[in-house]
Simulated assay, not measured.
Amino acid sequence: MATSTITSKGQITIPATVRAALGISAGDKVEFVQVESGRFELLAATLPVSALKGMVKKPSKPVTIEEMSEAIASNGAKAK
């Protein structure tokens, strides 16, 4: 497992093995995507959008329009 240390400025050096596996080099952008509480994935921002496939799980059952409207109405009222 590759590890890095965070500097006082909040910076890290991405290990060479990780950069090679992601196909990134100096000047490339990366994205930090939260996949669950306390867990992130590092993605090369140069990847096609199809690389994001599978990151968001499908709901166990489809949500109806009525259920969506109900959730929006109840949660919207709480925000006021």
Results as ranks from 00 to 15, higher is better:
27 G>C: 01
74 S>Q: 12
17 T>V: 15
44 A>P: 02
20 A>L: 12
17 T>D: 15
50 S>V: 00
60 S>P: 02
14 I>H: 03
65 I>L: 12
4 S>W: 04
20 A>P: 00
73 A>R: 14
26 A>L: 10
55 M>D: 09
73 A>M: 12
66 E>R: 08
57 K>N: 12
15 P>D: 02
28 D>V: 01
72 I>T: 10
47 L>I: 00
62 P>H: 02
73 A>I: 15
40 F>A: 04
28 D>W: 04
34 Q>M: 11
24 I>F: 04
63 V>R: 12
35 V>M: 10
24 I>H: 02
2 A>I: 04
64 T>S: 08
14 I>N: 01
33 V>P: 04
11 Q>V: 09
79 A>I: 05
67 E>I: 07
5 T>V: 14
33 V>K: 13
46 T>C: 05
12 I>S: 05
38 G>A: 05
78 K>F: 00
16 A>V: 13
63 V>Q: 08
78 K>H: 06
37 S>Y: 10
66 E>N: 03
22 L>K: 01
36 E>A: 09
32 F>H: 05
8 S>Y: 01
13 T>S: 09
70 E>K: 14
1 M>D: 15
58 K>G: 15
50 S>G: 06
39 R>F: 14
73 A>N: 11
58 K>N: 14
4 S>F: 07
72 I>R: 06
14 I>T: 01
72 I>D: 00
58 K>H: 15
77 A>R: 14
24 I>V: 12
54 G>D: 10
28 D>E: 06
71 A>N: 15
37 S>K: 13
12 I>A: 01
24 I>G: 01
18 V>G: 03
59 P>T: 03
27 G>S: 02
51 A>K: 06
25 S>Y: 04
26 A>Q: 09
63 V>I: 14
3 T>Y: 04
63 V>N: 08
19 R>G: 00
40 F>P: 06
55 M>E: 09
73 A>K: 13
3 T>R: 01
24 I>A: 01
46 T>M: 07
14 I>S: 00
39 R>Y: 13
25 S>D: 13
47 L>G: 02
44 A>Y: 05
18 V>L: 06
68 M>V: 13
12 I>F: 09
15 P>A: 03
41 E>V: 11
25 S>N: 11
70 E>Q: 15
20 A>D: 12
41 E>S: 15
22 L>N: 05
53 K>R: 14
35 V>R: 08
20 A>G: 09
31 E>K: 08
35 V>K: 04
56 V>G: 07
47 L>R: 02
53 K>G: 12
22 L>G: 06
66 E>C: 03
47 L>Y: 08
65 I>Q: 12
26 A>G: 13
31 E>Y: 05
31 E>S: 11
38 G>P: 01
44 A>L: 03
66 E>H: 08
3 T>P: 09
60 S>I: 10
41 E>L: 11
3 T>A: 13
60 S>H: 08
38 G>L: 06
58 K>L: 15
70 E>W: 13
43 L>Y: 08
